[in-house]
């Protein structure tokens, strides 16, 4: 019994050593509409491993405080895959300020500030499809045992 307790106590310590305070997990899902036994339509998220052009994929980044200290000044950064087009207005995270990059992550701004060059080299306001990276700057710390997530939707080009 004592031995078992000892092992159990050691496991979280090992996990912290390997993964740090925040564990980060990314998953890709698709929205599907299913009809329940009661005949109601429900939208569910199911994991995807394959996509076809035009498909919309929901990327969800989950971060869990597995340590014993508060994590502060949390920033989540995720590239929009080159084959994907970010869908305007879909980046979401509770209590976060959203920033975007249109130059591979070199510079960042809120959506209204970003400028790109058009085909003739003239500057124009960036569109959602121009975004290369999304960043969530969390306003609140995450306490041990708490979990947060960030999410966006992108369509395969």
């Amino acid at each position: 019994m004592n031995k078992l307790m000892l092992i159990l106590l050691l496991l979280p310590a090992l996990a912290i050593a390997a993964d740090g305070t925040l564990q980060v997990q990314t998953q890709a899902q698709k929205e599907v509409t299913v009809v329940t036994d009661e005949g109601e339509e429900q939208t569910r998220l199911v994991p995807v491993t394959t996509v076809v052009p035009g498909d919309e994929v929901i990327y969800t980044i989950t971060f869990t405080n597995v340590g014993d200290q508060v994590a502060q000044a949390i920033t989540i950064t995720d590239p929009v895959p080159a084959e994907m087009r970010y869908i305007d207005g879909t980046a979401f995270s509770a209590g976060a300020e959203l920033q975007f990059s249109v130059d591979g992550g070199d510079s960042w701004g809120v959506a209204e500030e970003l400028i790109v060059s058009d085909a003739e080299g003239k500057p124009r306001p960036a569109q959602a499809s121009d975004y290369t990276h999304i960043r969530w700057v969390m306003r609140h710390p995450i306490k041990p045992g708490q979990r947060g997530y960030a999410r966006f939707k992108a369509a395969l080009r």
Partner: peptide
């Protein structure tokens, strides 16, 4: 299509 997210934060 690969994707890796990163999280930076301050602790202690």
């Amino acid at each position: 299509i690969d994707n890796v997210a990163e999280v930076s934060y301050e602790v202690g």
